[in-house]
Design a protein around this nucleic acid. Structure first.
Length: 431
RNA sequence: GUGGGCGUAGCUCAAGCGGCAGAGCACCAGGCUGUGAUCCUGGUCCGUACGGGUUCGAGUCCCGUCGUUCACCCCA
């Protein structure tokens, strides 16, 4: 197609998008964003909005130099002043940057609980459920190192899914240990795998020096085989990390949130320490990860803040909509009843232009067609646009001082005095 | 970044081995000169993503590009 089109891997959200591609339907976004805001408020997370691009360095230092996300998936460009900027590939670094920049975590005991609904950008081969621009609902909680905060984030996330109506979910949970445990384990793993280097996949041979933990969740058969008998992270956990992880599990169990511990779960972000988790949903095909998160107790200091613990998650909204569609779940669509004004003749049209203004000022959604088409065409339009009521005005009504109100669902039609129509509709619309 | 499938009206899709490009929905109008959602009739809209090639002839075969999709990779 030579006609101009949306860039590869992006899409438009339309009033009448394709229900088979639920992420293209604007009403769906309104529904899940409303639920996200409600659930965030219930857990007392407040909204934060940060720029869609940051200085490139932030993601290199935050997300991590060796992650796939930073190594090969960023949209990076130089601005006209010569600065290197990157469209954010994930939410956490920008939030940490903002918190540090505005001294929100400067005092001992500072705490901050925030959420965002925002686009992220990753340059990957696009396919259903994986786009160059995708959207996430995420939360970050700073200042509380206790496992209770991990559990609250997980609970919030699962609550969000429950309120949206997702059925087929599974929560995978793991711990990487604190920074020292993680390092000890990393060294042990390298020691184990180094002699087997030649048996590893090409990617994993590189990871061995750059990011050895990632070899654990490789699906490549060679890697699965080569890592047989590898030491488990659990064996290298500090006492504190062990009790932390045990308490997180205890809290989830108490909260009746089912989970499975999966020691191969590593996640693709360098900054995680201790708890990490991921939620898988049915109906998503290969792109089955709906959201994930973890604790990052060293990230704030990495980004020049005072040492402050943090934990949070990001959840893909396109994938949520795809899962809901695949599972046959309907989102609640709230639209207030629409009133359609039908005019027969120019004088009636002018009268209706006054009436429509009055209705709108009384918070009654109203619309009309001013093109002077037949009554039939105007009713047809009212029906197509989903109006609940039609008001007809013609010569007869103008001289009698009435309007004709029709309930388009029941087809009931009655004459009502023009002077009473607004109050009458208000009582119909508000009940 | 790797490998495969697909790309025909606004939408969903049809056109055995290459042989005059169609349907349903949608949209407009009329039947009903002031009544939709039902029904009937008529009409509008595409020339097959784009570019090239083979052929008397290409939607159909070949090559390239673009887009999309599936798997890998990665992750949301």
């Amino acid at each position: 197609m030579s006609k101009i089109q949306a860039p590869k891997g992006t899409y438009d959200i339309l009033p009448d998008g394709n229900p088979k591609d639920p992420w293209t339907v604007s009403a769906n976004w309104q529904a899940i964003e409303r639920i996200a805001r409600e659930v965030a408020a219930l857990y007392h997370f407040r909204e934060i909005r940060t720029p869609i691009y940051e200085y490139t360095d932030l993601f290199h230092r935050g997300t991590g130099e060796t992650t796939d996300i930073v190594r090969r998936e960023t949209f990076t460009f130089t601005d006209r002043g010569g600065d290197s900027l990157t469209l954010r590939p994930e939410g956490t670094p920008g939030v940490v940057r903002a918190a540090v920049q505005h001294n929100l975590l400067a005092d001992q005991g500072s705490r901050l609980k925030v959420f965002y609904i925002a686009p992220n950008f990753r340059y990957e081969r696009p396919q259903r459920g994986r786009y160059h621009q995708h959207h996430q609902f995420g939360v970050e909680a700073f200042g509380i190192a206790q496992p209770e905060q991990d559990a609250e984030c997980i609970t919030l996330q699962m609550d969000f899914y429950r309120r949206c109506g997702v059925k087929d979910l599974s929560l995978r949970l793991n711990t990487l240990g604190d920074a020292e445990s993680k390092k000890r384990y990393r060294d042990a793993l390298v020691q184990f795998l180094e002699p087997r280097k030649s048996q590893l996949s090409e990617d994993s041979q590189r990871r061995l020096t750059e990011n050895p933990l990632r070899i654990l969740d490789s699906k490549d058969e060679k890697d699965v085989k080569a890592r047989e008998g590898a030491p488990a992270a659990q064996e290298y956990l500090s006492e504190a990390s062990q009790t932390h992880f045990a308490r997180v599990q205890e809290l989830l169990t108490q909260g009746s949130i089912p989970f499975v511990v999966d020691s191969t779960l590593v996640r693709g972000l360098d900054y995680y320490t201790n708890t990490v988790w991921e939620v898988i949903a049915g109906g998503l095909g290969a792109q089955n990860s709906m959201g994930g998160g973890g604790r990052y107790d060293n990230l704030v200091e990495t980004l020049d803040g005072k040492p402050t613990p943090g934990v949070g998650f990001g959840s893909g909204l396109e994938r949520l909509l795809i899962a809901l569609e695949a599972q046959g779940v309907d989102l609640p669509k709230s639209s207030p009843p629409l009133v359609w004004l039908i005019s027969l003749g120019d004088a009636a049209r002018d009268a209706n232009l006054k009436l429509i203004q009055e209705l709108r000022q009384h918070n009654i959604p109203a619309d009309m067609d001013p093109t002077g088409r037949s009554a039939k065409a105007q009713f047809k339009l009212a029906d197509r646009e989903g109006a609940a009521y039609a008001i007809t005005v013609g010569e007869t009504e103008l001289s009698s001082g009435n309007v004709v109100l029709k309930n388009l669902k029941t087809t009931e039609q009655t004459a009502i005095a023009r002077s009473e129509i607004v109050a009458h509709l208000q009582s119909l619309v508000t009940k």
